Each structure stands twice: as C-alpha cells, then as structure tokens.
Computed example of a mutant assay.
Amino acid sequence: MDLFNTLPDKNKNYLPKDGTVNYYGKLFSQKDADYYLKTLLDTIEWRNDEANIYGKRIITKRKVAWYGDKSYEYTYSNTTKSALAWTKELLELKLLIEHQSGETFNSCLLNLYHNGEEGMAWHSDAEKDLKKNGAIASLSFGAERKFAFKHKKSKETISLVLEHGSLLVMMDSTQSHWLHRLPPTKLISRPRVNLTFRTIDR
C-alpha cells in the first residue's frame, strides 16, 4: 500500500473551537483506492435509506448499509437498522483505520451516493446508540466531494474536499457543537462510497 509524500498534517484541527476534526488525506494508491471502490459497490448489501419525518416515510435515492461486530441495532431518522456481519474488505479497512487513528470501532455505516445530485443535509451524529464524544472515522472512495461543517450557535462554517481514498476523523465534542453535510452538486456524475466507522455503546 503506497502512502503519499504530500499527505496533510493529520494532527491539524480543522475546527477553530468546540471539537476536533483531523484530515489524513489519501491513504491509498490510485490502484488500491479503485479496487476498494469497485469491491464495495459490488459486494455491500446496499439498500435505499428510509426516514420517518413528521410521520411521513421517505425513501432516499442514496443507499446505505450497516455492518458491525454484532447485530447492533442503530436508530436514526426514526428508523432502526440491524448490523450485518463484516465482509473481508470491511475488516481490512477497519484495521487500517484503527491503526492510522489510534481509535477502535465496532460498527460501520456506509453511504452510496450515485452522483453529485445526491447529498446529505445538515445533521450531527449524536444518536443515543453511539458512544458519547466517540471518534467517527470517515473513509471516502470515488468522486471527490465537498464536506462542510457549521457551528450550531455561531453558524460559522468550515469546508474541505474529501479525496478518493482519504480519511477524515471527527472527535471529542464535535457532534455536540457542530453540524455537517455533504452539499449536492450537478457538476459530479461519478459515484462516491463513504464509510463511517463508529462505536455503538452497549
């Protein structure tokens, strides 16, 4: 696995206050990143995401999958998912991310965005099932996409571009004080797979 000489400073905190976000840049060669993108697209049990908003059931074009050490249940947007058993590739990626970040994870929520018109609205990952102030490692494959943060009180915004094969880690009180989103864009036609490694606290 080839590491790049021009990696960002992984110790730099991209947030000015009330949390920690570190961006590691690309962890994979182009060949390895392409391999994982294709494998994840072909082998993950993708399902259209569902949400219950004000009593109305919404089906998204974006697809998701939920994997873990055990059949953990995870509830968000008023829907509950039961974790599937890790695939070989997901376990490989989990071990790599744990080695890079120094954190440990027991589950992973994957998102498949077919093109730039599919995104994610402002939200924070602070569901009661998740470890309080636990790290969330976000691994990206495919199309480069802008990723944005907004402070819940000051409304200050920060954004960066997540590259093919790159890692971003959110830690400490980030979810308590900041929202994040993946803005839609009509300029991108290629798919993106995002893996968010998490810790279910049971």
Rank of each mutant, 00 (worst) to 15 (best):
L90A: 11
I44A: 15
P16C: 06
N194W: 00
Y72L: 08
F141V: 06
H114S: 14
T60P: 01
N11F: 04
D172K: 06
F197Q: 01
V161S: 15
P8K: 12
T87M: 08
K132M: 09
T196Y: 00
L187K: 15
S82P: 00
R192M: 02
M171P: 02
P16D: 04
T87Y: 02
A33E: 11
L93P: 13
N5D: 13
S138E: 07
L130V: 05
S124L: 10
S101N: 05
S166F: 03
K12T: 01
Y72C: 07
L162N: 12
K81C: 00
S176Q: 13
L91F: 13
D69I: 00
E98N: 05
S71L: 01
A65E: 00
E50A: 07
R145K: 13
F147G: 12
G119D: 12
L110C: 14
T104M: 07
G116P: 14
K31L: 12
A51I: 15
W86P: 01
F4I: 12
L37K: 10
N115W: 06
D34R: 05
D129N: 14
N11L: 06
V64M: 06
S173R: 05
T60L: 05
T185R: 03
W86F: 06
L7W: 04
S107D: 02
F197S: 02
T60D: 01
L167C: 11
K81A: 09
W178H: 10
H151G: 12
F141K: 03
R57H: 08
H164M: 11
H123K: 05
R198L: 07
G102W: 08
S77Q: 07
M1W: 12
T104D: 05
S159Y: 08
I158K: 15
A135T: 08
L96G: 07
E98I: 06
F105D: 08
E156A: 15
T75D: 05
S107C: 14
H123Y: 10
P8I: 12
P183S: 07
F141H: 07
W66R: 08
E89I: 09
L41G: 03
A83Y: 03
E117V: 08
Q30A: 14
Y36I: 08
